[in-house]
Design a protein around this nucleic acid. Sequence first.
DNA 1: ATGTCCACTAGGAGTGGA
Length: 263
Amino acid sequence: MKIATWNVNGLRARIDYIRLWLEDRQPDVVGLQELKVTDELFPHDVFEELGYKAVTHGQKSWNGVAVLSRVPVEWIESGLPGQSEYGARLIRARVGTDGDSVDFTTLYCPNGKNTDHDDFPRKLEWFDALREWAAGFIRAEESVLLCGDFNIVPTGLDSWNEEEFHGSIFHTEDERSRMRSIIELGLSDLYRELQPREQAFSWWDYRGGAFHRKRGLRIDFLLGSKRIVERLKSVEIDRDFRKKKDGLTASDHAPVIAVLDEA
DNA sequence: ATGTCCACTAGGAGTGGA
């Protein structure tokens, strides 16, 4: 099963680009973030044409998450309990068939803006709520996956400029300890599992030619349970799809893709 | 070089968020 996470930065603006990617990469399951569209306006027809069913948790203007799947998909829940006022940021579904299924959650975690902003302590609270929620169903022997845009740079290696940004937004110990506490529930960062020392990024600012200057951050993750790690065949950050394609503008995030063996 | 892009409201450009 080929699974992926991708912050698309506006589903409607990106729809033709997403179509190119799906046709080229042929993923089975995709967690999408930053849809910026309501469920009513979600373009199910486009995805159905390509063989995908979508379960969605959207809202007007901001946030919004969805799971696309061309294998059987069953919606489980939407929204992080107690945090629904902070935007449509979580959707969970079971994907695949018996014996090959994954408990699949995709997340658009709060940005926090900067460490002086009111959103920063709120971001930390959101992560505390996420840990408490995820603790309820993560089991080593089950295939559980949390993926998405975490808006945290977990270690210095994951930043293009840790020296300058250490202690600022995405790079604080307060955020990093939250990230570790999620991992410590029994999850692995699948990219790091196979690439322990490689510096690679999943997001580059649109401004200032950041992509071409290799000024990025790794903030998009596939986090898998022990059972997922046992099934893991390959992981890739699909940076080719951070580039313009046929005159179409890319998201500021690249997809992250993993291939899993059958259970 | 905070240099771009998205969605919204408004009314065909400006604002807020990332």
